[in-house]
Simulated assay, not measured.
Amino acid sequence: MPAVPNPVLDLLTVRGTVTEAEQITARMRRLRIDGGQLAGLEVQPGQQVRVLVGGLTLRTYSIWHYDPSGGVELCVLDHAADGPGARWGRTVTPGEQVRLRRPEGTFTLRPDAARHLFVGDETAAVAFGAMLAALPGEAVVSGCVETATASDRLPLAGGDRLDWVLRGETSLPDAVRRLAPEPGGIAYVAGEARDVQAVRRVLREAGWDRRAVLTKPFWTPGKKGMD
Results as ranks from 00 to 15, higher is better:
residue 193 A to W: 08
residue 148 A to E: 13
residue 176 V to F: 06
residue 176 V to D: 04
residue 148 A to S: 14
residue 152 D to V: 05
residue 161 R to F: 07
residue 192 E to M: 08
residue 162 L to D: 07
residue 181 P to T: 13
residue 168 G to Q: 07
residue 182 E to V: 14
residue 173 P to H: 03
residue 177 R to H: 06
residue 147 T to A: 15
residue 173 P to K: 01
residue 137 G to V: 07
residue 137 G to C: 05
residue 181 P to H: 04
residue 198 A to P: 10
residue 187 A to K: 03
residue 178 R to M: 04
residue 155 P to K: 03
residue 152 D to R: 09
residue 154 L to D: 07
residue 150 A to W: 13
residue 132 L to Q: 11
residue 147 T to Q: 12
residue 164 W to I: 14
residue 197 Q to H: 14
residue 164 W to P: 12
residue 194 R to M: 12
residue 183 P to V: 11
residue 170 T to F: 00
residue 150 A to I: 15
residue 140 V to Y: 02
residue 200 R to I: 08
residue 135 L to V: 04
residue 153 R to G: 07
residue 152 D to S: 10
residue 152 D to G: 09
residue 178 R to W: 01
residue 194 R to Q: 13
residue 157 A to V: 15
residue 172 L to M: 05
residue 133 A to L: 10
residue 167 R to Q: 15
residue 151 S to M: 14
residue 150 A to H: 14
residue 189 V to T: 11
residue 193 A to F: 12
residue 185 G to S: 08
residue 132 L to H: 03
residue 170 T to R: 11
residue 134 A to M: 08
residue 145 V to K: 01
residue 184 G to Y: 03
residue 162 L to V: 08
residue 132 L to T: 11
residue 162 L to P: 09
residue 145 V to T: 05
residue 146 E to S: 03
residue 167 R to W: 06
residue 149 T to M: 10
residue 174 D to I: 00
residue 148 A to T: 15
residue 167 R to I: 11
residue 188 Y to C: 01
residue 169 E to W: 10
residue 182 E to Q: 15
residue 138 E to S: 14
residue 137 G to Q: 11
residue 149 T to W: 10
residue 166 L to C: 07
residue 195 D to A: 14
residue 194 R to H: 12
residue 176 V to T: 07
residue 175 A to E: 05
residue 158 G to E: 03
residue 144 C to N: 02
residue 173 P to Y: 00
residue 152 D to W: 09
residue 195 D to R: 08
residue 151 S to Y: 14
residue 151 S to T: 15
residue 164 W to T: 11
residue 175 A to R: 04
residue 193 A to Y: 13
residue 144 C to D: 02
residue 182 E to H: 09
residue 157 A to H: 07
residue 163 D to L: 13
residue 163 D to K: 13
residue 136 P to Q: 13
residue 185 G to L: 08
residue 189 V to W: 06
residue 164 W to A: 08
residue 176 V to M: 07
residue 186 I to R: 12
residue 138 E to R: 07
residue 188 Y to T: 00
residue 151 S to W: 05
residue 168 G to E: 11
residue 196 V to P: 09
residue 154 L to G: 03
residue 183 P to K: 12
residue 155 P to Y: 02
residue 179 L to Y: 15
residue 138 E to D: 15
residue 154 L to M: 09
residue 171 S to D: 02
residue 173 P to V: 03
residue 181 P to G: 11
residue 135 L to A: 03
residue 183 P to L: 14
residue 179 L to I: 13
residue 143 G to D: 03
residue 161 R to D: 04
residue 196 V to G: 05
residue 181 P to A: 07
residue 172 L to D: 02
residue 160 D to F: 03
residue 181 P to K: 09
residue 149 T to E: 15
residue 147 T to D: 04
residue 191 G to R: 00
